[in-house]
C-alpha cells in the first residue's frame, strides 16, 4: 500500500476533508452535477419509474412520520425520569388488526401502478430498430442489425490514462471521468430501440439511469429490453453487475440525436464509408 505522493493529490485530499465537513453541515456547493435523487430520465417509462419511486418514497415518509412521531412522543412522555408509571397492558386485538390492515391497504395502493408499469416495460412490440449488445471483459460491442454497422465501445483514453494507480493525473481535470467512451451508441430520438443483450464471458449488466434500463447480459443467452428516448442528448451509464477486475471501467454512452444526424452518422459508419475514409 502506498500513499499518494503527488502534490495535487494531497491538495485534493484536504479539499475533500473540508468538503465533507461542509457536506455534513448540509451546505451545498457549486457543483453542477451534484445529484440527490434518481433522474427523471428521457423516456416515458423512466418518468413513470421516477414517479413510482417518488410515490413510494412519500408513502414511506408518511409512515415514518406517524411511527417515529408516536415513538418520539412516547420517549418524551413515558420515561421514568418524568415520573411515568408503567401500564400493564400486553395485548389488544383491535390494535393488532388495525396495524395489519392499514399496511395491506397501502401495499395494494402501491401494487396497482407498479404492476401497470412492469407490464409496459415488457411490451417490446414494433421496434424501429434493433441493436445487439455483446458484453466483454471489459468493454461493450454494439451491432446494428440490418445495417452492417458494428463496433466496440471502450473506456475513453483520457479516463483510461488517469485511472491507473499513481497516474499523476487528477481525475477532476478529466472530462466525464470514467463515464466516457471512444465509440458511443448513437440512436435517433423518438425511435423505439430494441436491445438484445448477451455476453462473451461472464455476466454483465447494461445500465443507463436516464433511460431507466438495466438488463443483464448473460453468456449463451439472449436478453431483450427496449427504450424510446424522447430528448436529444448524451446519456451515461455503467456496467452494473460485477464482472471482474475492470468492472468499474466499462462505461456506456448513448448519444440520442435527431433522425437526420443519425442517418448521417450511420452512413459514415458503413464499411464502404470507413474504407473510403481510410484510403483518403
Amino acid at each position: 500500500m502506498r500513499l499518494p505522493t503527488r502534490p495535487q493529490g494531497e491538495f485534493s485530499m484536504l479539499r475533500k476533508v473540508y468538503l465533507s465537513v461542509l457536506g455534513l453541515l448540509g451546505a451545498s456547493r457549486a457543483n453542477a452535477d451534484w445529484a440527490l435523487n434518481m433522474p427523471r430520465g428521457v423516456t416515458r417509462l423512466s418518468a413513470e419509474t421516477y414517479d413510482l419511486h417518488m410515490q413510494i418514497f412519500y408513502w414511506c415518509c408518511a409512515i415514518a412520520l406517524v411511527v417515529f412521531g408516536v415513538m418520539i412522543y412516547s420517549l418524551i412522555r413515558h420515561r421514568k425520569s418524568v415520573g411515568a408509571k408503567p401500564a400493564t397492558f400486553s395485548h389488544s386485538m383491535k390494535a393488532e388488526v388495525i396495524w395489519t390492515t392499514i399496511p395491506i391497504i397501502i401495499l395494494l395502493i402501491l401494487a396497482v401502478p407498479s404492476a401497470r408499469t412492469v407490464i409496459e416495460l415488457e411490451d417490446s412490440r414494433k421496434p424501429d430498430m434493433t441493436v445487439v449488445i455483446t458484453a466483454y471483459q471489459w468493454r461493450w460491442h454494439y451491432r446494428y442489425t440490418g445495417q452492417d454497422v458494428e463496433f466496440y465501445s471502450s473506456l475513453a483514453r483520457t479516463s483510461g490514462d488517469a485511472r491507473r494507480l499513481d497516474s499523476g493525473i487528477d481525475p477532476f481535470t478529466v472530462d466525464n471521468y470514467l463515464l466516457d467512451v471512444d465509440n458511443p451508441l448513437v440512436v435517433p430520438v423518438g425511435s423505439k430501440v430494441r436491445l438484445l443483450l448477451t455476453a462473451n464471458d461472464v455476466v454483465h449488466s447494461w445500465w443507463v439511469p436516464e433511460l431507466a434500463i438495466k438488463k443483464d447480459a448473460i453468456p449463451g443467452f439472449m436478453n431483450e429490453t427496449w427504450f424510446k428516448a424522447e430528448t436529444v442528448g448524451t446519456y451515461r451509464g455503467q456496467c452494473a453487475e460485477l464482472c471482474g477486475m475492470d468492472h468499474g471501467y466499462m462505461p456506456i454512452v448513448v448519444n440520442v440525436v435527431e433522425p437526420q444526424a443519425y442517418a448521417a452518422w450511420l452512413a459514415s459508419k458503413q464499411p464502404a464509408a470507413t474504407q473510403s475514409a481510410a484510403t483518403n
Partner: peptide
C-alpha cells in the same frame, strides 16, 4: 414502549 416507564 407506550405508557411504560422508560430509562435509557
Amino acid at each position: 414502549m407506550w405508557r411504560g416507564a422508560m430509562t435509557f
